[in-house]
Design a protein around this nucleic acid. Structure first.
Lengths: 344, 344
DNA sequence: ACCAACAACTAAACCGATTTAGTAAGTAAG
DNA sequence: CTTACTTACTAAATCGGTTTAGTTGTTGGT
C-alpha cells in the first residue's frame, strides 16, 4: 500500500546534476551513440548501480509503446499438455527478456475474447493463443491491427495467420494403421464433439486409415463426447462400443484424459486390455509408460511447439517477415507400448 | 510494430468538448461522487462504448501506482503440482480482476531474486512465491518495503511471513505409519538432498513414524538424491536399498517424480511391487490410480492451496490485516491404493 | 579572425491515464 | 444586495520514463 517512492531516473539526474536525457541515454546503453563522455557514463552507471536503480517498466512501456511482455492465452494451464508448452514458452521468452502474462480461457470463447482485449490494454507486445476457435472477430481484429500473434494447437484453417500445430491427421492415421497392422479389425474411436480443428483432423485420420485398409468406417464405432461431461459420458460410450452387436477390438482415444478415464472404466468393467480390446491414446500423461498396461500413445513435441511459437512470434514482433505468415506443422511420434497388444 | 494509435481518453474529451478530468471520473464510476450531471455521464459512457474505448493499463498503472497484476514465481510451471496450483491461482485472480504474470525460477535462487525484482519493476500489486528458500535477502527486502506477498509450498520457517503450506510432516508420518500398520518393518525413504523445508518435514515425519513404532531410523535406509540428476541416481539408490544387507520391504518416495521413476526402475529390476517392496508417494500424478500397481499417495489439496494463497494475498493488498501475518497449514489426504500391499 | 564541424550535453514534449485544487454560474438565506 | 453554498465542471501537475530538436563550447582549417 504505502510503497515508499522508488528511486527514479530523475533522482539520479538531480543528485548528479545531469539531465534526465543523459541519464536515460547512458542507462539504455546509448551513451556512445549520443556522444556522452566516457567519464560521465561511468559516473552515471556507478551511481545507478550503487543506489540499486531499476527502471519502472510501466513508465518505460508507456513511453515506448511496448512492454517487453507477451501474452499467453490457453484453455487451461492445469492441463499437462498446455502446462508443458507454457513452460517452454516462458523459458524462451525469459531468455529474450520477455515476461509472460497468462490467462486461461476455459474453452469459453467470450472469455477468450475478453482476455485478448485485456492483454492488448496491458500493452503486451505479442500474443500466443491456443484458441477456442470461436473468435473469428477477434482474430480478424488482430490481423487488421497488424498485431503480432501466433496460434498453436488450435488454429483457424480458413484464415491466413501464423501458427504452429502438430499433424493431428497423420497422428491418428499412423496409430490406427498400427492397430490394423496388428490384426485389429473393428476399431472404435472415442473423441470429442466437433468444433476444434485438431479433433476434426484426428477423426479424419482415423477414418482414412480404415479406408486405406478397405474398411468402411462405421458411424456406430465413433463416439463423440461432450468435453465438460466426459468423465460421466465415457462409461456409456465404452459400454456401447463393447457390448453392441458390432463389438470393437480396439479403441482410439483422441486425448490423454479420454484415454486415462477410458482405461479406468475398462478396468472397472473388467475388460482386459489389450486382450479384449487394445487401446491407444493421442497425446499422453507422464505416467502412461507405467500404467497397467502401458498405453501406446501419439506423442506431441511440446518443446518444439513452444519454442517454434516463440520464435515465430519474435520474428513477427521484430517485423522481420512482414506480411508473410509463417506456419509450421510438426510431426508426432508413436510410442508403442503394451496397450495395443503388440508387446504382450 | 506500427500500432495505430489507440483511441484514448483525450480523444473522447476532445470530441465531446469535455475535459479529460470529467471523462476520467465518469469512466471510473466516480461520476456521481464528483457531481457530474446524469446527462453528461450518459453521453460520455455511450460515446466511449461506441468507440470501443479501453483504458491503457500501463498509463493507469503508472499514475495509480498499481497495475491490477499479481506476480507468480514458481520453480517450474511444467510440474503438475505447480501447474494445478497456478491454474486455481489464475482463476481466482481473474475473478477479482487481476491478471497474473508468471515466471519459473527453475530452482535457481539467483534467477528467483531477479524475477522478484523484475516483477516489482513491472509494478505487480502482489506476489505469490514458491521459493527456492535461498533468498533471505529478497524476502527481507519485501518485508521491509511492506510489499504484499505470500509464500506457498516452500516458506522460510524462521521468518514471519504470510504463507500457505501443507502439513508435510504429518503427511509422511501418516503414510509411513500406514505401512508399519500393514506389517512392513524395514522402510526406506528416497528423498531429495536437504535444503527445502517441505523435504525436511517429510524426512522428519518418516523418522518420527518409525520412532513411534519403536524402530530406530537407519541412516542406510534413507537416500538423499540430487534433484537435477534424480533420473540417473535413483537406480543406484534403489539397488542399494534392495540389495544391501538390510533389505527394505517398503519405500517411501518424497515426491511424485521420484515415485514414478522409482517404479520404473523397480519394474526394470523385476522387483515385485508390493510383494517384494511396497511403495508410497508423497504427492501424485494424475494417472497414479491406474499404474501398475496403483500407487498409494499423500494427496495435496491443490485447490485449497491456490485459493487460500490468493485470499491471503488480496487481504494483504487491501491492507485489511496490516501487520499481522496470516499462515495456513493444510492437511493432506491419504489415498490408499495397491502399491502398499493392503489391497492385493 | 571567421566559420564549419563536432563533442557533450539539455529543455521540453510526450506516452495516457489519475487526481488535487480550483473556478464559474446558479440559488438560497439574511 | 451581499455572503455562503451548491452544482458542474476544468486546468494543470503528476506518475517515470523516452526522444526530438536544440544549445553551448571547443577545435581546426583557411
Amino acid at each position: 500500500m504505502v510503497r515508499n517512492k522508488k528511486y527514479a531516473l530523475k533522482d539520479i539526474a538531480n543528485d548528479l546534476n545531469i539531465s534526465k536525457t543523459t541519464v536515460s541515454f547512458v542507462l539504455n546503453n546509448k551513451g556512445d551513440e549520443n556522444k556522452i563522455s566516457a567519464d560521465t557514463q561511468k559516473r552515471i552507471k556507478e551511481y545507478a548501480k550503487k543506489n540499486g536503480y531499476v527502471p519502472n517498466q510501466l513508465a518505460r512501456g508507456l513511453s515506448r509503446g511496448k512492454s517487453e511482455t507477451i501474452g499467453l492465452i490457453i484453455p487451461n494451464i492445469s492441463d499437462t499438455f498446455y502446462s508443458k508448452v507454457a513452460g517452454v514458452i516462458e523459458k524462451e521468452a525469459q531468455e529474450q527478456g520477455y515476461t509472460v502474462l497468462f490467462s486461461s480461457s476455459y474453452e469459453d470463447p467470450k472469455k477468450e475474447g475478453k482476455l485478448i482485449h485485456s492483454m492488448l490494454n496491458r500493452q503486451v507486445d505479442g500474443l500466443i493463443i491456443a484458441s477456442t476457435q470461436q473468435n473469428q472477430k477477434e482474430i480478424d481484429f488482430l490481423k487488421k491491427e497488424k498485431f503480432p500473434f501466433v496460434l498453436f494447437d488450435r488454429y483457424y484453417p480458413d484464415k491466413d495467420t501464423d501458427y504452429v500445430v502438430v499433424d493431428n491427421y497423420l497422428g491418428t492415421k499412423k496409430i490406427t494403421k498400427h492397430l490394423l497392422g496388428l490384426g485389429r479389425k473393428k476399431i472404435g474411436l472415442i473423441t470429442l464433439k466437433p468444433g476444434l480443428e485438431p479433433i476434426a483432423q484426428r477423426l479424419q485420420g482415423y477414418k482414412d486409415a480404415l479406408i486405406d485398409f478397405d474398411i468402411k468406417p462405421e458411424e456406430s464405432h465413433i463416439v463423440e463426447i461432450e468435453r465438460e461431461s466426459y468423465f460421466k459420458e465415457i462409461e456409456n460410450a465404452i459400454i456401447n462400443l463393447i457390448s453392441g452387436k458390432k463389438t470393437v477390438d480396439a479403441i482410439v482415444f483422441s486425448t490423454h484424459y479420454l484415454a486415462s478415464q477410458g482405461l479406468r472404466v475398462l478396468k472397472k468393467l473388467s475388460i482386459s486390455v489389450p486382450k479384449d480390446v487394445a487401446i491407444v491414446s493421442f497425446d499422453e500423461l507422464s505416467a502412461f509408460d507405467i500404467v497397467d498396461p502401458p498405453i501406446t500413445s501419439v506423442i506431441q513435441p511440446t518443446n518444439e511447439i513452444g519454442s517454434t511459437a516463440v520464435k515465430i512470434l519474435l520474428n513477427k514482433m521484430n517485423g522481420a517477415i512482414h506480411g508473410k505468415t509463417e506456419t509450421k506443422v510438426l510431426e508426432t511420434k508413436l510410442e508403442i507400448r503394451a496397450s495395443c497388444g503388440e508387446l504382450e
